[in-house]
Design a protein around this nucleic acid. Structure first.
Lengths: 349, 349
DNA sequence: GAGCGCATAGAAAGCGGTTGCTGCGATACT
DNA sequence: AGTATCGCAGCAACCGCTTTCTATGCGCTC
């Protein structure tokens, strides 16, 4: 029914071995033979059997990309950049590889299962993006799995994710702490002293690092860090909306809010506006990531730009072995403070 | 080196066949034996070899999801919904399937190559999302490939994409034409007569349908359709920004602009604002899709809500054979007009 | 107690490629 | 001319799992 290598071989009057070699192009084949084979391939409309090939060659052309939330442009942009370097059709890479994006939904269980699935498929490489959950049993399980993957020859790259110790995984980590610190320093510099903070979900490396940066800035400036001014939520607009209302309830005199990311910041802006506060006239707001829509917000969002596309592309190249991993296997990618319309000097009280 | 079925069998003192049967659970195995096998699997940390399994069983657990642009939330949301139904870890489905998202970048060549790659992997199902390019040779090539896939037993579902004739592909198409018509009717109802239109890329089904709906509404209301009031661009904010400036240059007295989608609308708003025009005071703007950020725009965006998540989930279920395909293999998914702040009555001139 | 059927385990033949090694004719070298 | 060398094609042994078919042991029935 389906056309196999043997069929092609028969038609081209050669052995299956020759056909395989023509297709893989890593063995000398006479031009005339090659042509005959290619003609047969074309005529029979032959399509290689991936699993069979992977089995025999003990490698596959699958590359896994794990993302926390594919509906979030933060991950979409990174995934897109990674994929463009992985190859697949149209990518810069030569060999055609199937870049597969897996959506973990932020759940460590799913992350683990996807890793197993990729291990099962003998993936050539795996790129994990975004923050990791710091929940203990899972963190160790993931680390163990990554260890096993690298041992089996799968290249593992972390993109925008904290390094995993005792693993041969290459890490391209965002400087979330430094970025957050800069951002809060900027607000403090404008004169803000009552800063609310909408943090991301607990037990999350990204959340923790951004929060630490924020606190460092507060401490450095001698500003009191009232724990009541920090609210945890998710990385979506809705959380921002609700958290902003909660912060306002706790302290109506807040003059600035730093959000977990841009979506959260936008949600917060909406809540503030509906509460009758003007941004930045009455209260400043800052985001994080600098996603494309941030510049179109009104007022445009002060935020920290993370070079998502660049980092993703680099991670992709490293995963493909087309770029040297950074020394020590760890590189820090810095963000850039983008001062825009949503932050201003505090209202005199 | 790597643990195989035979290793597990040896350890459990059974034959490889028995281990396979325990793992697949479709053959009676005595409880005591099963237990022994599972124990061995656990102790040896055995991971099934996917390719080998796929080869022997002549099926794989891969499901492909093709998207035009993974960095665009429009596709991210759909992909996320599809994937949640496909299963993979945590999904509602029973079997663990690897949902792979492939980014075509809107290029028909890549689309074709990805389809071949999936065919090669003997994917269980394929879901294509978003509009298709209407470029003739490619459209036919894609149709031929889809035909071949369905013939090989791969379920093919189109989500938010126009049906492909002569294919056994199931289509869940968005009513782009009807939605666009409603939107323009709304603007005409408000009193607008000089409507600009920022359309998507040419040779694209989505673009064509939305444009047709727009023109239908104009024609029905007896409003002249000046071709100079239509500009083509891409589905991103930048295109919207540039196209809006171009439209203004061509006709400074425009009172409304309908955009190809929400991102384009936001870009247009930015351009208008920078040109000193207020929205909707001086000019109304409408988007399409109703992506999450649209409600946070200032003013919030009048648009047509497309049930992306619902449609994606349904497409996923159909792809998995867990839901009956619609009669005739084609269903139309309607959008809903969302009237918000960016549209208002035209300024009296 | 012999015959039967049922439940369960094993043997072995693929699935469709890849690749090390062998073979063979032609060319190059002494 | 004789032989070492090279280029290219084929043979055949896997790769690791699934599955059909067969074998065995056991409890039953008549």
């Amino acid at each position: 029914m389906t056309v196999t290598l043997a069929d092609v071989a028969a038609r081209a009057q050669v052995s299956p071995a020759t056909v395989s070699r023509v297709l893989n192009g890593n063995y000398p084949v006479a031009a005339s033979t090659r042509e005959r084979v290619l003609k047969a391939v074309d005529e029979l409309d032959y399509v290689l059997n991936g699993p069979a090939s992977a089995l025999a060659a003990a490698t596959s052309d699958l590359v896994g990309i794990l993302v926390n939330d594919i509906a979030d442009p933060f991950f979409g942009i990174m995934a897109s950049a990674i994929q463009s370097e992985i190859g697949g059709p149209g990518g810069r890479a030569g060999g055609e590889r199937l870049a597969v994006v897996c959506n973990t939904g932020g759940s460590p269980e799913r992350e683990l299962t996807y890793l197993t699935l990729l291990q099962r498929q003998r993936a050539a490489a795996v790129v994990l993006t975004g923050g990791a959950v710091e929940n203990e049993p899972h963190a160790e399980a993931v680390a163990a799995k990554l260890r096993k993957l690298t041992e089996a020859g799968t290249r593992v790259v972390l993109c925008g994710r904290a390094p995993t110790p005792d693993t041969r995984a290459i890490a391209l980590a965002f400087d979330n702490r430094g970025g957050a610190r800069q951002l809060t320093e900027h607000l403090i510099g404008l004169g803000h002293r009552r800063l609310g903070c909408i943090a991301g979900p607990r037990e999350h490396t990204t959340t923790r690092h951004r929060l630490e940066g924020h606190r460092e800035a507060l401490a450095a400036a001698g500003v009191e860090d009232d724990p009541r001014r920090t609210v945890h939520g998710h990385y979506d607009r809705r959380s921002g909306y609700e958290a902003a209302l909660e912060l306002l309830r706790r302290d109506p005199d807040l003059t600035a809010i730093v959000a977990a990311n841009d979506s959260v910041a936008l949600g917060a802006c909406a809540a503030l506006r509906e509460s009758g506060l003007r941004v930045p006239g009455d209260i400043s707001v800052a985001g994080f990531d600098d996603l494309p829509f941030s510049i179109d917000a009104v007022p445009s969002l002060t935020t920290v730009r993370l070079p998502l596309a660049e980092a993703g592309a680099r991670a992709g190249r490293i995963a493909m072995g087309r770029e040297e991993p950074p020394p020590g296997g760890i590189a820090t990618v810095r963000g850039e403070l983008m001062v825009r319309g949503s932050s201003g000097v505090p209202r005199v009280q």
